[in-house]
Computed example of a mutant assay.
Amino acid sequence: MSDASSTPASQELRPRVEKLLSDILGLMGFPARLDFKDASDGSLCVALHFQDGPPPGVEQGKRSQVMDSLQFLLNKMLHRPGAERRFVLLGAGAHPEPRSERARKEPAAPAPAAPAPAAPAPRAAPPAAPARGQARAAPVKAAPAAPKPVAARPVEGDERALEVSEEPSLRAAARALAEKSATLGRAYALVTMKSEDRARVLKAVGDVPGLKVSCEGEGRNRRVVFTPDKLAPLPKRSMLPADDDEDELEG
């Protein structure tokens, strides 16, 4: 979908963005209708309207790690070294706002009030001198404070021990990715999943030959990792350039 105010540069970029996004979303199993819009800061905004619902961890109209990762990957693939750069911003169900517009709408934080000057502490009177012939008492040292106990770091549970119901759509997508990982020799990882969904993936792909599947990381960074028994080297022409600044790709 295009708008009447699109520039020639935008019309040239849009077919590439549409082709790359359609291929990536198709491999993910979440096809979407793409709606393009030229932003005020010169970037290209794309609203992703998922046909069968958004992927896990994605909410309509809100930013997420999944959308940020997809945006970062797309810009890496579009911007080759030495070429003119025009960044693409992605939003789930709506056009994302450029960073400059979001900063203009957010209220400025009030300056912290200066602390009141503290009153000077009263000067302690010097100790009275002992009477003549009286022994001077030796100062008593305070006992050192006991060290505070360090809280034990919580250990992530084993997803394989969870009892979960089967979801056919998730099982089919997980097995397709596992078979692709084993066949091509590529390592993949599934992020932003609940522990129950990670358990369903482990249960679904446990019998895929030539592949090792495990859960790694802690908290929000915990992920399901597909590692083939025989890793294939990535062709040089498919390697992404490493000269882009990640901060510039943030929408």
Rank of each mutant, 00 (worst) to 15 (best):
G210F: 05
V58K: 11
V164R: 00
P55H: 06
Y188D: 10
M1K: 07
F36C: 12
A146M: 04
V225G: 03
A135C: 05
R186Q: 09
P54N: 11
E196G: 09
P130V: 02
E18N: 03
M239H: 05
A109E: 02
A118L: 14
A108R: 05
E106C: 01
E167A: 15
F72G: 01
S6P: 00
A121H: 15
T183Y: 06
Q60R: 13
G42E: 09
A129I: 08
A108D: 05
M1N: 06
G42T: 11
P55V: 04
G133T: 01
A129L: 12
K37S: 10
P122R: 10
V66F: 11
P112A: 02
S100F: 04
R200D: 03
E166T: 10
G29M: 11
L78D: 00
A111C: 07
A83V: 06
P115A: 03
D35R: 11
P149Q: 11
S22T: 13
A174P: 14
A242N: 05
D207K: 15
A187G: 07
E179I: 00
L234A: 00
A142Y: 07
R198C: 01
G210D: 05
G29V: 09
R85S: 05
V224D: 06
T227Y: 08
V224Q: 07
D244I: 13
K37P: 01
C215I: 12
S43Y: 05
P96V: 13
M239F: 02
R123Y: 11
S214Y: 08
E163N: 09
A119E: 13
A189P: 04
R220T: 13
V224Y: 03
P15M: 03
S100W: 03
E248K: 12
A151K: 15
V208H: 14
E246F: 13
R33K: 13
V213E: 08
K141T: 13
A145V: 08
E166S: 12
C215M: 08
L48M: 04
K194N: 12
A142P: 06
V17G: 00
G93N: 03
L231G: 08
Q71C: 07
K37A: 10
A161Q: 15
Q11P: 00
R16W: 03
R86L: 02
L34F: 00
T192Y: 07
E218H: 01
M67D: 01
K141F: 14
A146S: 03
A137E: 10
R85Q: 09
A39G: 12
A9S: 11
